[in-house]
Design a binder for these strands. Structure first.
Length: 752
DNA sequence: GAGCACTGC
């Protein structure tokens, strides 16, 4: 007998040979389980999911779990879960919701009895892994068996056995592309929904409509308090328009006292340094966390704090202790990131004033990393945020004021182990009136080419009318549709083409997917695969401040004069040839970590290519190979072309007419007339970065729709293109005439 | 003659 999810489920009978006496779940009615039943099963000697005796460790952990705030509310939760399809849940840090709620769900939903899974999504890979590990311990099972996780590059689940799966939100979205009804799942929990990642936002839209098609699917949205009402209203799917029910769990944190400045601070870095030193001099022992915006600012501040703190200590060793300053940002190697967990330094002399640790961090310490022992937070109120300008199609990073929610999150970092203090370097009035409530969700700040392709593949017909939690600007959607149409991923009616369907299966930007898919036609798919992988990982070049010359020289050795894309290929090939030498990357000022990551991505993409029978080919002729690669590049990135104007090295982007300069990191040895660029960065001025020379002929040949002269804005770029076009047509005519006279020309070529 | 906020597939 197969289980039909659309009918009410029978109570659990002894599934195998066991009897009621030995089956801890005997008599459990799926989705109608009460707290007494669950507690009895949890307290029993036999693990209900493995039928093995519970370990001693299990019982110890269970005692700790029972003290979590959420545990006391199991009864209410089970009731609400039984009675509703969708629940919005709020719980502050320390409530235990991420570990406990999915377990409660399993006891009620009993996914293993119907060959289904409970999924719990996380915005970050590390969280998915570490929470799964913790929950496997709590349930007394081996990680990867009944409880597992699934993230890119690593599937720690066992089909048929795993019934509770932690996963990244992006991973669930990928799964939805091949199974729009998400049939494998009986309950889906979206955790950290308030972070509003692109993937979580899209999943919310999908789940809302899926809830109607699959009345048997239960959905739980977990978030921080501030956003609850918005989600409750959004998930109001009953006829009478009632908001989705709310389940509240108290947190368990210590109070944090917040201080504001009297007047606005003109220089937040200087004010931050001053505040850190003030705390060090005048406040009780306890570590400090200072939020700044980027690598350079952080390294600079660390140097200054260190200098001044040493000064203070030398002047007044009786009352000022030693201080260590630790920088923290994502591009730091993991080993150095670990330093944030080092204890504060000991007093310099026995019985002397105690030492203090200062962590100077980007936003990474706001959500991704928690540092225990922080008592003081210094918050200047800024972070770097991505903004997308659809008009000129440019992504950039801007230092912007944070939101109130962000400021609260930062303050909370001071109260994790004991009561703390937060020093905000802005006025209370500014906090109240100037800061936005929430950070704008990613979907409002991003280029959506990828998302649109995914949605179309998911079967969403009308992208503009899709039920978004927050709808993106129509212009952003139009830009994405336009790009996908030029790439032939969508036809003129907005329908997914066969090519587009393949493109969507690659975890890549559409331009790169296109370039990879066409690369066998240019006999260079091996190489394009490498380039695409290298473009998908963080910067491989390392440039230590005191060894810039050496680093630049090492880079010059590896550079290919025709373009940075070819240089990336060269770097990867050299890396592979020197893999036996563990110091090779370091000696060449390259990031071992990024290169290893590229290798990983390359293997994954190769696997996808094989699935679609896309050939992996190369040619032996180096010249032809490089030409082929640059032509394939044109097929994907024809909308990112710049034309040299004048002799001073200024470039103008085609159609968008932005004046840009080659980025100083660019390895071209000349300034070619036409270049393709991988990214447009707006820093001190507009730059194009990762640049390769191309020929105008190729653009006309491989992207005729985009380079249609009748629809091209007037200007120097158009005149240059027209000259090339005329030359091409003259050649074509001469070629045709030549052919009509005989085989003179081709035979000459053949003799060469 | 500059710089990678942070995630994710």
């Amino acid at each position: 007998m197969t289980y039909n999810p659309y009918t009410s489920a029978p109570p659990v009978k002894s599934a195998s040979s066991s009897t009621s006496a030995t089956d801890p779940l005997f008599g459990f009615l799926p989705r109608n389980v009460n707290v007494k039943q669950v507690l009895k099963a949890m307290d029993g000697d036999v693990n209900p999911f493995t039928r093995q005796p519970h370990s001693e460790q299990y019982k110890k952990i269970l005692q700790i779990r029972k003290k979590l705030p959420v545990f006391a509310q199991m009864e209410d939760f089970l009731k609400m879960f039984s009675e509703n399809q969708i629940i919005v849940m709020v719980g502050e840090t320390g409530s235990g919701k991420t570990t406990q709620i999915p377990q409660f769900v399993c006891y009620s939903d009993l996914p293993h009895t119907k060959r289904k899974l409970v999924a719990c999504t996380q915005p970050r890979r590390v969280a998915a892994m570490s929470v799964a590990k913790r929950v496997a311990d709590e349930m007394d099972v081996q990680l990867g068996k009944q409880v597992g996780y699934s993230i890119r590059f690593e599937d720690m689940t066992e089909p048929g056995t795993t019934f509770l799966k932690y996963m990244t939100d992006g991973m669930l979205l990928r799964e939805a592309m091949n199974d729009p009804n998400l049939e494998r799942y009986s309950t889906i929990i979206l955790d950290e929904a308030h972070e509003r990642t692109l993937a979580t936002d899209i999943l919310m839209g999908l789940l809302k409509s899926l809830a109607k098609r699959r009345p048997d699917l239960k959905i739980i949205i977990m978030s921080a308090t501030l956003d609850a009402l918005k989600f409750q209203k959004y998930f109001s799917i009953t006829e009478n328009g009632e908001p989705a029910p709310l389940f509240k769990v108290p947190g368990r944190t210590h109070p944090v006292e917040v201080f504001y400045t009297q007047d606005p601070e003109p220089d937040y870095v200087e004010a931050a340094i001053r505040t850190v030193l003030m705390i060090h001099r005048a406040e009780d022992p306890g570590d400090i966390l200072l939020f700044l915006t980027g690598e350079e600012e952080i390294e600079d501040a660390c140097r200054k704090i260190k200098l001044e703190a040493d000064d203070l200590m030398n002047q007044d060793p009786e009352s000022v202790g030693p201080l260590v300053c630790i920088p923290l940002y994502s591009s730091l190697p993991p080993q150095q990131q670990q330093r944030i967990f080092d204890p504060a330094p000991p007093p310099r002399v026995p019985e002397g004033p105690p030492g203090r640790k200062v962590v100077v961090s980007t936003n990474i310490a706001e959500t991704s990393l928690t540092i225990d022992g922080i008592v003081y937070v210094v918050d200047p109120g800024f972070s770097k945020q991505r903004v997308y300008n659809p008009r000129i199609r440019v992504d950039s990073l801007l230092v912007s004021p944070i939101s109130k929610a962000s400021a609260q999150q930062r303050a909370g970092r001071a109260g994790r182990t004991r009561p703390g203090k937060c020093f905000r370097l802005y006025t209370e009035k500014d906090f109240m009136t100037e800061l936005e409530e929430q950070t704008h969700p990613e979907i409002l700040r991003s280029n959506l080419a990828n998302v649109v392709l995914e949605l179309v593949k998911l079967g969403v017909k009308d992208l503009v009318r899709f039920d978004y939690v927050d709808a993106p600007a129509p212009e952003t959607l139009m830009r994405a549709l336009e790009l996908l149409n030029f790439l032939a991923a969508l036809d003129d009616d907005g329908q997914l083409t066969a090519l587009g369907s393949i493109m969507a299966d690659f975890p890549l930007d559409p331009q790169m997917a296109k370039m990879l898919i066409v690369s066998p036609e240019f006999r260079c798919s091996n190489e394009v695969l490498t380039i695409v992988a290298m473009l998908s990982v963080p910067n491989v070049w390392i440039r230590p401040p005191n060894q810039r010359k050496e680093a630049d020289a090492a880079k010059a050795m590896m550079s290919v004069p025709d373009g940075d894309h070819l240089t990336l290929l060269n770097v990867f090939n050299n890396y592979m040839q020197n893999k036996h030498d563990r110091n090779w990357a370091w000696n060449n000022y390259l990031s071992q970590r990024a290169l290893a990551q590229a290798e990983n991505v390359r293997a994954q993409l190769q696997h996808t290519m094989e699935r679609f029978d896309i050939d992996l080919v190369s040619t032996d002729d180096q010249r032809k190979l490089y030409t082929g690669i640059r032509q394939a590049l044109c097929c994907g990135f024809f909308m990112q072309v710049a034309h040299k104007e004048g002799e001073k090295g200024a470039y103008i982007t085609v159609k968008d007419n932005q004046v840009v300069a080659l980025h100083p990191s660019c390895g071209l040895d000349t300034q070619p007339e036409w270049v393709i660029y991988h990214e447009f960065v707006l820093t001190t001025k507009p730059y194009i970065r990762t640049v390769t020379e191309v020929k105008a002929e190729w653009l006309l040949e491989f992207a005729p729709q985009y380079f249609d002269m009748s629809a091209f804005p007037d200007g120097e770029t158009k005149r240059a293109l027209l000259r090339v076009q005329n030359k091409r047509s003259r050649k074509a005519i001469e070629g045709a005439n030549g052919n009509s006279k005989g085989i003179e020309r081709p035979s000459k070529k053949a003799r060469k």
